[in-house]
């Protein structure tokens, strides 16, 4: 009996742990793809809050009211009030507006740029590919946050700087992902068939490559939005992002931190909860989409 035989016998006797188990959900959730619906529902609630903020928020999020400072949770103030007497619930709802909008919009440009560069790079290879990948190496040599923060500083505070800074850094991940896919596709038979039947290169790339690689990029975009929320919130926490009178989760937490030791948790915990809620929603959504689109990561 050879060693390989012994190994084969042993393998049938002892089943190894499942390879396919994902991080989030138990098996019954995966079977019905509940993650997709739970994620979509959780994110949907947050998006609705952002859209209908003026209707949902019971109080003005920016006007200080010294007489009602640091109130505990009550029916009038669902999440209590902060040190300036502003209603925390209203501020969290309006915060969804500023933070979610930037986080979601900031995904679009890197997505498009990364997709285009990735497809061209993967299809043609050669010198263009070498240059693109070296450029990607250079961008990823900088720690993500440090490059984004330095860029925002150079261009000045505000939403536009945040967009540009995030775009400069995060197109790389899409380009690398899509390039890998495109390199596999390049050698498929249908591509040769397209070339043989005289379809132009641009036609092949747009009509046949984009639909084949886009779902991977969409799934990645979900975790990219999570990362953007983290960037925006951290920038605002450090005083470099959205400027204070505008409600934003990061600056809310920065303001609440000094009151934690005094026992006023609401100012920090509720915005933090909103951040965690959003990223949980997107993680569920990303895993659900992976399952739905049958992508094997």
């Amino acid at each position: 009996m050879t060693a390989t035989d012994a190994a084969a016998i042993a393998r049938t006797a002892i089943t190894p742990p499942s390879r396919k188990s994902r991080v989030w959900a138990p098996a019954w959730m995966r079977r019905h793809n509940l993650q997709l619906w739970i994620g979509a529902g959780m994110l949907g609630l947050m998006v609705l809050a952002a859209i209908f903020a003026p209707l949902i928020a019971p109080h003005d999020p920016t006007t200080p009211d010294a007489a009602h400072a640091l109130l505990p949770v009550s029916a009038d103030h669902l999440f209590g009030t902060d040190n300036l007497g502003r209603d925390i619930f209203s501020r969290v709802v309006y915060g969804a507006r500023s933070d979610l909008t930037i986080a979601i919009v900031a995904v679009v440009a890197p997505f498009v740029i990364g997709l285009a560069f990735g497809i061209v790079s993967g299809y043609f290879g050669g010198w263009f590919d070498s240059i693109m990948m070296r450029l990607a190496d250079i961008v990823t040599a900088f720690p993500f946050f440090i490059l984004v923060i330095a860029l925002v500083f150079l261009m000045g505070n505000g939403a536009l700087s945040i967009f540009i800074a995030i775009t400069c850094v995060s197109w790389v991940a899409y380009a690398r992902l899509v390039r890998g896919e495109a390199m596999v596709l390049r050698n498929k038979e249908f591509v040769a068939a397209c070339q043989a039947s005289g379809i132009s290169t641009i036609g092949i790339l747009v009509r046949h490559f984009v639909p084949n690689v886009v779902s991977q990029a969409i799934v990645y975009a979900m975790s990219d939005i999570v990362m953007n929320v983290g960037v925006i919130v951290t920038l605002s926490y450090l005083g470099l992002g959205i400027t204070p009178p505008t409600p934003d989760w990061g600056s809310m937490m920065a303001g609440g931190q000094q009151f934690l030791a005094g026992g006023f948790y609401g100012m920090t915990l509720f915005p933090a909860g909103a951040v965690i809620w959003t990223s949980l929603a997107l993680s569920f959504l990303g895993d659900g989409l992976t399952h739905q689109l049958r992508i094997d990561r």
Binding site: G230, T234, M253, Q257, T268, A272, V275, I276, L280
Partner: peptide, 18 residues
Amino acid sequence: NAVVQGAPTFFIGAMLIL
């Protein structure tokens, strides 16, 4: 994993300090 991955670093820091 689910909670920590979503929580901003500075928030985890603030909680550990607390």
